[in-house]
Design a binder for these strands. Sequence first.
DNA 1: TAACAGTGTTAGTCTCGGCTAATTTTCTTT
DNA 2: AAAGAAAATTAGCCGAGACTAACACTGTTA
Lengths: 148, 148
Amino acid sequence: MPAAKKKAARATSAKSPAIEDYLEQIHNLIATKGYARVVDIAENLSISQASVTNMVQRLAGEGYLLYERYRGIVLTDEGRMVGEAIARRHDVLSRLLSGFGLDPETVHRDVEGMEHHISRQTLEVLTLLMEELEANPALVTRLKQRLR
Amino acid sequence: MPAAKKKAARATSAKSPAIEDYLEQIHNLIATKGYARVVDIAENLSISQASVTNMVQRLAGEGYLLYERYRGIVLTDEGRMVGEAIARRHDVLSRLLSGFGLDPETVHRDVEGMEHHISRQTLEVLTLLMEELEANPALVTRLKQRLR
DNA sequence: TAACAGTGTTAGTCTCGGCTAATTTTCTTT
DNA sequence: AAAGAAAATTAGCCGAGACTAACACTGTTA
């Protein structure tokens, strides 16, 4: 195979919500604890350890991370980019909705679902909205009054 | 099993995105054409007719619609409620994003994905936002300037 | 250093929601 | 009314992504 890529993850490839959830979670764990263990990923995603091992092997095969049995997990540049992108969407959505006083449990559930379906352009719009609302509490107050 | 329900769809039961897509589409077809044929549902969801037949039978079993082989499809109250709810979320999200001039293709893809993950409370917030922006073009203009 | 607890892995299975191919029913057209 | 076209259905299959049970590795601790 002369000029063939091994099957590396392309920036534009279709990522399933499942893949994005794993990468987001692995990214978050590495960012906060310095490493990502199978048991923690499983705990945070509320799935079994066996499922995590399976998926991690697949993600390694697709070029999102480096994996050595019984050893550890390291994100590739590609994997880190995806994880960070989802984390950013998560943050924007959370702050946008939290600003209106929605209960944290609801915010969490909705954000969890929505974050996988937001394009770059939509993210920009929602970021704009979030920033405006955070900079303009009077507007939020006025809007919230209509929530009754 | 003395006091057991037959397995009817409860208002609070978990509906998969797939189920919601079918019910939204069936609802839309009935609203615009007066009836929902398998071939049209398949076309609108970009899936095969066989898949539609299968799912329609399942939805009938779960109480979302009435179905008679080779005849027709009628939504139950439960099915109509779900279909309308999703259509409402679709409308709010579309208008909210379109207001910022995002290209229709992008709006469509994002809305399609997000509409299944929006709680009643979040819908209220987004509705509020949409109404404010539609009533206040000056605000939109000001925000859009920051999009560059 | 031997054993135990905890973590990780493998093997095999399940459900969901698609698919194609073949068949049946209905509709339309002559 | 018979034939061909269109729509609907059935049967069997597949891949994603979960699960459990059993087994393997690792690291700590007596």
